[in-house]
Design a protein around this nucleic acid. Structure first.
Length: 704
DNA sequence: TCAATCCGTATC
DNA sequence: ATACGGATTGAC
């Protein structure tokens, strides 16, 4: 696949080389150093080409070209023009100047190289992530949107006024407004209008005469920040970048940024590369959301990418969310970032009251009592909120994540003997469990036919909504998830069933939230299960009114678990510290730097043999991995948010399909050496056309 | 001793 | 993919 390049190249200043005898090198800097679009690791370096006089104007640093490389025409980007080449051989002429637009800004060129180095990838791979496909017609038009001299912001007001509830908030905004490279990790208060806070921070950067980049996980968050930026800055002062805009609109907005017509950007994942001139603020919302992990090589992560970019560009960084990741905690612990958190009394005043149901110990002691309590507590909580005229949020895992069960003989839905909740099989347990109370159903017996065996039934939010509808006759039922995501619901009684990440905002806040199947999410065999579950709980619970206004949350999980305690006490910081300590003890990122190598067994062994790993490197595995096709269902909302809709592009192992995964672990200080060694080994293999791809991922999200 | 051919390697 | 250089082989 070539660099993103438009189809209609004929429309613009396309300069083709004339017949060979007529070509003459440009009088000044006749040599162009070019990054060619070939993904091979051993070709990850610039190649020099001669610039004919006819292309002198169009071939500039950052412009797109086509060149003959190893006998075929490939796309490339000009890195620089120089006086002479050090290449001893004869230089080839540039075949065609695709366009004179300098799409690769110098800052982004440096960033892309650093990203390639950090994640053991090739520059050409990173450029494919950083530069959107060309659209010739759009490029030929004048800069989109308003001219740079747009009307001034409507409300100049005190910068960062909404940050006053956080002791360190105003100081951070002042620093950004002064153009200083402040760095902060921010835990938003429950119910916080966080898009407005981000917009204020962006406004501070603009007031310093610098640019701002805000990256959010998905389209829904993008729409909210987009609106907040319009409110704070006025129309035409920013753009929203998303992959699903369509090629023309996407390129139009991106070009407006590159040409300096706008200096503030909000977008999903790929927007972290937005070529904002002189960025003063780089912000990411909810860095724990796995949509921030780029699924295409070299698999960079938004948070780490922006941290890297901030270093290179001297920009401020803001990592915000209701939850805090172990990675953010490390940035705080190491002193790299300051924390922006509200005082306890502010948190208590803003948070809803949280109750946990699903205490295993109590169930063992007195199953009937607990079983009777769960539905009644959840139902009573919901009923009270509805009676008070408020909507109730019900968070359920995505369809297919929790396959429900039915009787194998009569196909009646299998229900919990204690509380009549639906039974489900989970990946963690051999014995099915109740989705409501978590009680294990080892002694299950079908009430209608006395059968003892189960069959799987696909069930998800739709079924849950149906069941709730029966339990609350006459109450409006709304669902949000999958392809149909609601942005907001009105302040009126309704049951709102949503998958994680698709929870609509409620006008005036929800009266209550029921977080179902929490115990199942928590017991997933995943290193990040607790952090991820808590993150989803916070996201839902933050939409509920404060306890003082009657806001209630019921979570279906054991109240003794650390994550549940963190929700009840609304204490994301303590939980992140604990999480980081655990990772340190286990030797997992971010306490260490880790690389995951996935491929066919012989390819893996081959790469391992070629790699001159740091002496400190520790090998874990290899262990067999499931093939992508048979992969486990992701318990993920993923509502049309992804940036690039990317094909996987990764290693799809040998023909026999059996893949192995090897983990390589080094101390954090050796991370760069590890990445370099792996990239070098990949170069050795690609140079000798070694068969079988190996996917190299640094600090992969999924461990174990 | 030279030329045709094969193989590995670089790709500007 | 294709082109090149060096090694290899086979005939004189």
């Amino acid at each position: 696949m070539p660099f993103p390049s438009g189809g209609q190249a004929r429309m613009v200043v396309v300069t083709r080389s004339r017949r060979p005898e007529e070509r003459e090198p440009a009088p000044v800097d006749p040599v162009a150093r070019i990054c060619v679009d070939v993904p091979l690791a051993h070709l990850d370096r610039p190649f020099d080409y001669l610039v004919p006089t006819t292309m002198d104007d169009a071939v500039v640093a950052g412009s797109r070209v086509r060149v003959r490389f190893a006998g075929q025409l490939v796309d490339g980007v000009v890195l620089e023009r120089i006086a002479e080449s050090e290449y001893p051989g004869t230089l080839e002429w540039i075949n065609r100047a695709t366009s004179a637009e300098p799409v690769l800004a110098p800052e982004i060129a440096r960033l892309a190289r650093a990203v390639a180095d950090r994640w053991a990838g090739a520059l050409s791979d990173v450029l494919r992530l950083a530069i959107p496909p060309r659209h010739a017609r759009v490029e030929a038009q004048a800069p989109a949107g308003e001219p740079a001299k747009a009307p001034p912001p409507p409300d100049p007001g005190p910068p960062g006024g909404g940050w006053a509830r956080y002791p360190a908030g105003p100081a951070f905004c002042r620093a950004v407004a002064d153009g200083r490279a402040a760095r902060a990790v921010w835990q938003a208060l429950p119910g916080e209008d966080w898009p407005a806070r981000l917009a204020e921070a962006a406004q501070a950067a603009l007031s310093a005469g610098r640019g701002a980049v805000v990256v959010v996980p998905d389209r829904r968050d993008l729409a909210r920040v987009d609106a907040a930026l319009t409110a704070a800055l006025g129309a035409g002062r920013h753009v929203a970048l998303a992959a699903d805009l369509g090629p023309a609109e996407r390129y139009r907005r991106w070009l407006a940024v590159r040409r300096g017509a706008v200096r503030a950007v909000v977008g999903t994942r790929a927007a972290a590369f937005a070529p904002v001139a002189d960025p003063g603020l780089l912000a990411v919302w909810d860095d724990g959301d796995d949509l921030h992990a780029e699924p295409r090589a070299p698999y960079p992560h938004t948070r780490d990418l922006l941290v890297l970019r901030a270093h290179l560009a001297g920009a401020a960084v803001l990592l915000g969310g209701f939850a805090r990741t172990a990675e953010a905690q490390l940035l705080v612990d190491s002193g790299w970032a300051r924390e922006i958190v509200a005082p306890r009394e502010q948190v208590r005043a803003a948070a809803p009251r949280v109750a946990a149901v699903g205490d295993d110990a109590q169930i063992a002691r007195d199953p009937a009592a607990v079983a009777a309590r769960l539905p009644s507590l959840a139902f009573e909580t919901a009923r009270a909120a509805l009676a008070a005229g408020a909507p109730v949020l019900v968070q359920v895992p995505r369809r297919g994540y929790l396959p429900a069960l039915a009787c194998a003989t009569c196909r009646a839905p299998a229900r919990c003997g204690a509380c009549s909740g639906p039974l489900a099989a989970t990946s963690g347990h051999a014995i099915p469990a109740c989705r409501w109370c978590g009680r294990l159903a080892g002694d299950w017996r079908c009430p209608s036919c006395d059968g003892r065996r189960f069959r799987a039934v696909v069930v998800g939010d739709a079924r849950t909504a149906e069941e709730l509808g029966r339990a609350f006759p006459g109450v409006t039922l709304r669902t949000s998830g999958g392809a149909h995501v609601l942005a907001a619901v009105p302040a009126e009684p309704a049951l709102v069933v949503a998958t994680p990440g698709a929870e609509p905002v409620a006008e005036g806040g929800y009266g209550a939230a029921l977080l179902l199947d929490g115990w199942a999410m928590l017991t997933r065999p995943d290193l990040r299960a607790a952090e991820e579950t808590l993150r989803r709980w916070y996201a839902a619970a933050a939409l509920v009114r404060p306890a003082s206004a009657g806001g209630r949350v019921v979570v279906g999980a054991d109240g003794g678990l650390a994550a549940v305690q963190a929700l009840i006490r609304w204490d994301p910081v303590t939980h992140a510290a604990r999480e980081l300590a655990e990772r340190a003890e286990l030797g997992f990122p971010p306490a260490t730097r880790m690389a995951s190598l996935t491929g066919a067994p012989d390819a893996l062994a081959d790469l391992q043999a070629a790699a001159r790993l740091p002496g400190s490197a520790e090998l874990l595995g290899p262990v067999p991995v499931e093939t992508a096709a048979a992969g486990t269902a992701r318990p993920d909302a993923a509502p049309a948010g992804g940036t690039d809709g990317g094909a996987d592009g990764g290693a799809d192992g040998g023909a026999d399909g059996s893949l192995e995964r090897l983990l390589v672990r080094v101390p954090r200080a050796e991370g760069a050496a590890l990445a370099e060694a792996l990239h070098e080994a990949a170069a050795v293999r690609s140079a000798r056309k070694a068969a079988g791809p190996v996917r190299i991922q640094l600090d992969p999200l999924e461990l174990i």
